[in-house]
């Protein structure tokens, strides 16, 4: 409704810079000009926040970027999953969301015979997977049939809040690249808030601490610099320690 009115204001609104402001459920975000986006709801033509988060306006949409909450899978997400159950033609994968995700034998890169599933992936194994589809009752399916998707061997897994994932990755992958180059670790960040790290045990510890720093200070200023300082000091002292 009121389509004309919205279009009328379109050009003016899109020039407005994103606002950073903590909102709580029930806060009024906009009364008419913008469109309701994620984390919002419409009532009597006005847009209210439905989640605790940060208000942001982008291309005529008001969104609330959540500060917490569960991971809700959406198609195309790269996730790290744990095998929790085995069936004769499928595995059940825990992807750190309220919904378990089945992985069918036709969605793995190997040719698996019926009933032979445990030979390829067993309970407790971790995999890199991609969310294939999510239906309206939130029934999820994952796939491993894509390049780069595989069973994870070795390394460690840590959990962070899924809403902090974009911060850990950084603008264009800058943050994660920095951690990788300083610690010489192989790191994979899943959209579901699981991070897999592999490398030298000491370096893994530094990388984990750096990630925890990002997680705690996700909304603070100069985060990248602070993480860089930390990594610089740690890797230097770590190398010195080895030389002695």
């Amino acid at each position: 409704m009121k389509e004309g009115e919205r279009d009328f204001n379109k050009d003016k609104e899109s020039l407005v810079k994103p606002v950073r402001e903590i909102v709580v459920p029930g806060d009024l975000l906009d009364s008419g000009k913008l469109k309701p986006g994620d984390g919002t709801y419409l009532s009597n033509g006005k847009i209210y926040a439905s989640q605790l988060g940060i208000k942001s306006i982008k291309s005529n949409f008001v969104n609330v970027i959540p500060l917490g909450g569960p991971y809700i899978p959406s198609p195309g997400d790269s996730v790290i999953g744990k095998i929790v159950d085995i069936g004769p033609s499928n595995w059940l994968v825990d992807i750190n969301s309220p919904y378990p995700a089945p992985l069918h034998v036709t969605e793995v890169p190997w040719k698996v015979e019926f009933g032979d599933t445990a030979r390829y992936l067993n309970i407790g194994d971790t995999i890199l997977a991609k969310v294939l589809l999510v239906d309206e009752t939130k029934r999820v399916q994952v796939t491993m049939k894509e390049q780069g998707l595989r069973k994870l061997q070795g390394g460690q897994i840590i959990d962070i809040s899924h809403s902090k994932v974009p911060r850990v990755i950084g603008k264009g992958g800058s943050m994660i690249q920095m951690i990788k180059s300083y610690t010489n670790c192989r790191i994979f960040v899943g959209q579901n808030g699981r991070i897999w790290l592999d490398g030298d045990i000491e370096n893994i510890v530094y990388a984990i601490r750096a990630i925890r720093m990002i997680e705690e200070g996700a909304q603070t200023l100069r985060l990248t610099e602070r993480v860089k300082e930390y990594l610089e000091s740690m890797t230097r002292s770590g190398l010195n320690g080895k030389q002695q």
Binding site: I22, P166, K180, L221
Partner: peptide, 24 residues
């Protein structure tokens, strides 16, 4: 609720709007 998450200044959250996954 605001006090819990209050920080003096909030850094650019534009990044948060471009979620992507870093592949190794």
């Amino acid at each position: 609720l605001r006090r819990r998450y209050a920080v003096e200044e909030i850094e650019t959250f534009e990044e948060a709007q471009h979620p992507q996954t870093a592949m190794e």
